[in-house]
Write a protein that binds this DNA or RNA. Structure first.
Lengths: 242, 242
DNA sequence: GGAAGCGTTTGATTTTGATCAAATCACCGG
DNA sequence: CCGGTGATTTGATCAAAATCAAACGCTTCC
């Protein structure tokens, strides 16, 4: 399905240079020299993706890579009969794409309204051959995603529903509101249905666990999406991470 | 705990050169020039690991990397209360180790009697800086492991017990007996307890599903470990992979 | 205002897999 | 051969989460 975006370039005076990427986060830009950065900037475009926009489908070829500038992207796998599993969440400033293999093993979809900075495979491939540090950076990102995937396998295989929901909230808190580590406050980037697909549960079970955590004062819900965690240590304990 | 091995070198005349690796599989050796290969061979040692031997513990530093020459290594994560999840299986000729990060996020243990060909971090790091193809090879391996981990997340999160056991048998068949694709015959590298830890089930449930698959003629069990699959297509279907 | 639609919550019931318990099997050493 | 030990299977019961069903709350749009 490709990228169903609207190109900000044409609708505003935001310069093509990937300045926002450079300033706000350490995506691929961080490994590049000033000249390379300006080259990448010239060849990259900024896009806004509305929540729900598919970036790439499962098994599709991925002709463009992206840095996530703002927002959350979910990676999903679907079975033939429709059962679905979210296998990863990518937060800014994560890189979206993989070297060597153009075929994407997962579908990527904007979970929230998202901004990305994207460029073609060829552009990045060229930069990588000239800049070993960039290859190393992408290698490190792959290893980080591998660690995250394996952490989540433990959650999926061995934790109770309550521990799963606590683990999810913990993950979001750490990634969205990392400043404060004793307390946290954030907007959930996923609907209850998505959370269920991430945790291998049903919507109803997720909802019941939210209610339970609320009644036990582990979390406070301003509305369905806005969460406050008064005691992160307690949440960590309930998540089974000691 | 380090490697509890017995060094074959001292007990036999097997040469130090990693000739077996080169001949039998495409581990890291495949990316090296003849000179580099002979250098790596000089610096590497071959070891036999009895089933159950721990190669590296969760969170430990990994000072040596290895190619798996023969056998199966399981990667596990453990929770504080003892709950355990196998997060990956490595078959020959997989590489065991990771660049950049010496700290292992998982414990690695020989599931079967295993032979590895191992060398120090420093040796490989040097080779990688001189040989970009080698870095690429390791990057590809990381991406392959990531794909496998995410595939398994779907299994853990969304499949029934029967589908899980069928998925496990399918995985083993593909990796141990890859020649024949309509039929398969192999020895299970894992005990029922390990299979349970891989699938996020209990021993009893795994056993019941084996019995069920046997009664439905999906598999035949010569003994607890030896399995024959008369119809791989059927197994694939039961695993939920269409 | 009110009807429609969607996401979420709550309730009643069922199902799957876990737990508890015991029997069986396979292998090993005396 | 026999008793012992650990792995596996089988059986009975229980509990957690799924399923089925309905209500609720919120937004949108006549």
């Amino acid at each position: 399905m490709g990228i169903l975006h609207r190109d900000i370039r044409s609708s505003s005076d935001v310069p093509l240079v990937c300045r926002a990427c450079e300033a706000r986060h350490g995506g691929v830009c961080a490994a590049l020299s000033p000249e390379q950065l300006s080259e990448l900037s010239r060849r990259s475009t900024r896009h806004r993706l509305d929540a729900g926009t598919e970036v790439v489908g499962q098994g599709e070829s991925m002709e463009r890579y992206s840095n996530i500038v703002r927002g959350v992207v979910k990676l999903t796998k679907v079975m033939a009969d429709g059962r679905q599993q979210i296998v990863g969440l990518q937060f800014a400033p994560d890189f979206l794409g993989r070297l060597f293999l153009s075929e994407s093993a997962v579908a990527a979809e904007a979970a929230t309204d998202t901004e990305i900075c994207s460029f073609s495979r060829g552009t990045l491939d060229q930069l990588v051959t000239r800049t070993p540090e960039l290859g190393e950076k992408l290698h490190r990102q792959a290893l980080k995603e591998l660690d995250e995937a394996r952490d989540w396998m433990l959650t999926l295989g061995r934790k109770s529903a309550q521990e799963k929901v606590a683990s999810f909230l913990h993950l979001i808190a750490v990634n969205i509101d990392p400043e404060n580590d004793s307390t946290a406050s954030f907007d959930l980037p996923l609907s209850r249905a998505d959370i269920a697909d991430f945790l291998g549960l049903t919507i109803e079970t997720v909802s019941r666990q939210f209610t339970r955590l609320r009644k036990e004062n582990v979390i406070r819900l301003v509305n369905n999406r806005q969460v406050t965690v008064p005691d992160m240590a307690l949440l960590t304990r309930l998540a089974g991470n000691d």
